[in-house]
Amino acid sequence: MSAVQTTSQDDTRKRGPLAEVFFSLLRSRTFLVGLAIVLFWVACALFGERFAPYDPLADDIINALAPPSREHWFGTDQIGRDVFSRVIVGSRDILTVAPLATLLATVAGTALGLLTGYFRGIVDDVVSRILEAFMAIPVVIVALLAIVALGTSKTTVIIVIGLSFAPIIARTVRSAVLAERELDYVAAAQLRHESALHTMFVEILPNVIPPILVETTVRLGYAIFAVATLSFMGFGIQPPSPDWGLSISSNYGMIGGGFWWTVLFDALAIASLVIGVNLAADGVHGAFND
């Protein structure tokens, strides 16, 4: 009973600062520009097919590799598919896979970080060493190994990237928890003989939300980076999806011949999405640390 009261009091006390963060986000130009770019691509992912001039999957061999023109604004690819339509619809898969992977990473990483930060001692030592080993090789390579072993599918990509990012989030959460667990409210909960799980998830967790939110937005940028890279290498999103990384991978072999439009617009699309997410993340970071 007493626990319920403490948390609800905590909530009312926290509403002030959270609202402040919200308003400072609205005032942050970096955040708003980033958000606008991201929302643009989200809109394309949701409604792209309605305003794309052509079917992104329909080939038209006679008009293959046509340069940009009034009929095909961004030209056509090697089997005559309209590049403009493909770029618009191409945001769909990456905007499903990357956020889901980030969500998984956040949930798993938060749980791990709470456990290691709260219990310290042997649990912390063992888990931290394992996480360190995990982080000693680049995510793309961990993912490559896991995907080759498990077989390629969207679910595998989500799980692999989610689990590869979990240690990084765990590290952030752990250091926040280490600071929190010394505070009086944790001691109070322990004196009330609350269970460790209750103390971790009900008492400490609400107080470490800000670093988790910041880390999550940053990770989303990296998740998009990783998914795009894996798709480019053929281990991520699979054909016939009009995914950007995948399109670049199937067309870049020909750019020596001057067919720049088959890859340039996809590359710019990825660049804009990644920069948009990072601008937004930068804004969130700023809002929480002002």
Binding site: F225, V263, I270, V274, I275, N278
Partner: peptide, 16 residues
Amino acid sequence: SVTVLPEFVTGIILIL
């Protein structure tokens, strides 16, 4: 901005 871009994206643009 250039740090957060995937290498194959900057690579493609530089190749072009």
